[in-house]
Simulated scan of single mutants.
Amino acid sequence: MKAVPALLLALFLTACAGVPKPPPGLGDNQAIVAPKTVLTIPPPSAAGRSVELAQSIVAKFYGRSYALDMQIAIGADRLDLVAMDGFGRRAMTVAWKDGAPSIEKAEWLPPVFRPADILASFVIAYWPDDVVATAIKDPAVQVVTKDGVRRISRAGKDLITVTYGPGEGWNRSAVLKNEAFGYEIAIQSAEN
């Protein structure tokens, strides 16, 4: 059961990018994905189907690169994720069952790494447009995927773009660029 999320990498990037600390009252299931833009993590069933994946992720921010290998399994009422660094150390484990995520983070991860940020990047890259739009809950934000590119924009300005490689659904590469916070995540993804 190998898996995915570009999420942990987003956390690395979020920490490095100097993204503002979460405001008081931000829930454990919410992430700031752009200035004044909050995404509430939808339940695993919103993914649209069950899937097991393996992913390799490389994130880039101001000349720094971070690499992770992930395993993820999504079912109608569960999400299981394991993220490992290049040394084989477990960085994070997420088990989402019974309506709430249970998260274990490695002590060596900086405290600003929020699991919700990791999960938000995963949702942005791979879940259906309508699910992403509903999760953002901002009528000014548009989510459109066309010709292999997903754009999340406000007032005609891209906040986040995801460019997909050949293939369909989860079984393809993706490059997520967060224009608002200045980082990029390259994802190689394959279903098991």
Results as ranks from 00 to 15, higher is better:
V51A: 14
V51P: 03
E52N: 13
E52P: 00
E52L: 03
E52V: 05
L53D: 05
L53V: 14
A54F: 03
A54V: 07
Q55P: 01
Q55L: 06
Q55I: 09
S56R: 10
I57P: 01
I57G: 13
V58Q: 04
V58F: 00
A59L: 11
K60N: 12
K60D: 14
K60G: 12
K60F: 10
K60S: 15
F61E: 06
F61L: 08
F61S: 08
F61H: 01
F61I: 06
F61G: 02
G63F: 06
G63Y: 01
S65E: 13
S65L: 10
Y66H: 13
Y66A: 14
A67W: 01
A67M: 08
A67F: 06
L68A: 10
D69H: 09
D69Q: 15
M70K: 00
Q71E: 13
Q71L: 09
Q71K: 10
Q71W: 02
I72G: 14
A73T: 05
A73E: 12
A73H: 02
A73V: 08
A73Q: 08
I74W: 00
I74A: 09
G75A: 08
A76W: 03
A76E: 15
D77C: 01
R78K: 04
R78H: 13
L79I: 10
L81A: 08
L81H: 01
L81P: 06
L81E: 07
V82N: 08
A83V: 01
A83S: 04
A83L: 00
M84R: 02
M84D: 01
G86I: 03
F87L: 13
F87G: 15
G88C: 03
G88T: 00
R89H: 12
R90V: 14
R90H: 09
A91E: 13
A91Q: 12
M92I: 11
T93C: 09
V94Y: 06
V94F: 05
V94W: 05
W96S: 13
D98V: 01
D98M: 05
D98I: 04
A100V: 10
A100F: 05
A100M: 14
P101F: 11
P101V: 10
P101T: 07
S102G: 12
I103E: 15
I103F: 14
E104A: 15
E104T: 15
E104Q: 14
K105H: 08
K105L: 15
A106R: 08
A106L: 09
A106V: 02
A106K: 03
E107L: 07
E107A: 09
W108T: 03
W108I: 10
W108D: 09
L109G: 13
L109H: 10
L109F: 06
P110G: 10
P111D: 14
V112H: 01
V112C: 04
R114N: 04
R114V: 01
P115R: 02
P115Y: 10
A116T: 13
A116K: 08
A116G: 15
D117S: 07
D117P: 04
I118T: 11
L119G: 01
S121R: 02
S121P: 05
F122D: 05
V123Q: 00
V123L: 09
V123I: 09
V123K: 06
I124A: 01
